[in-house]
Simulated assay, not measured.
Amino acid sequence: MNYIPLILSGVCLNALAQVFLKKGMLMVGYFDFSLVNIAQIIFKVAGNPFIILGLGCYMFSVALWLLVLSRVEVSFAYPFLSIGYILTAIIGYSFFHENLSISRLTGIFFICLGVVFISKR
């Protein structure tokens, strides 16, 4: 059976979790860690819908990942997680206007190439 779609679903959910967490933290804003404001920060973070959505995506991606690991070799499945780097770079560029320089694009190319080699049994 081909488990690559299941692996990619988990990877995409993990990347989506990162995007939701980033959006949530942009809404929370910059803060300093100190005992004085710890309760306020926890309240702001825990009550943010994007943080909650991101954590939910993480939980579901972990459940999928456990399913994957019960069926395929970890040395086959684990390299696919690097696709998350690609997805988050593209989403970060598209939605958050983050830098996507030539060096990052080159790195993404090599990640893609590596995943192609790994996926060939």
Rank of each mutant, 00 (worst) to 15 (best):
R71I: 09
F20R: 08
K44M: 08
P79N: 04
V36M: 05
C12Q: 08
G114S: 00
I102R: 07
A89H: 03
L105F: 05
L35Y: 14
L13K: 04
Y93I: 08
G84L: 03
P5G: 01
G29N: 07
I51E: 07
F76Y: 10
I90F: 12
F109D: 02
V74S: 10
G114H: 01
I91S: 14
L64D: 01
P5A: 01
M27I: 12
I38T: 13
T106G: 05
V45F: 01
N99Y: 14
V115G: 03
S119T: 09
I118Q: 07
I118G: 01
Y58Q: 10
G54W: 03
F50V: 10
M59F: 15
G10F: 03
W65C: 06
S75F: 04
L100P: 01
I42A: 15
G107R: 00
A39L: 12
I7C: 02
P5N: 02
V19K: 07
L113V: 09
S82H: 03
I4G: 03
F110E: 00
G56L: 14
I102P: 01
S119A: 14
I7S: 04
M25I: 05
G29H: 07
A15Q: 02
L6K: 06
Y30V: 14
L26A: 08
K23H: 08
I118S: 02
L6I: 11
A77P: 00
I86K: 02
L67A: 12
K44V: 04
F95C: 09
L6M: 10
F109L: 15
Y85V: 05
I52M: 05
V19T: 15
G114C: 00
K23M: 09
N14G: 12
F80R: 05
S9Q: 09
P79W: 03
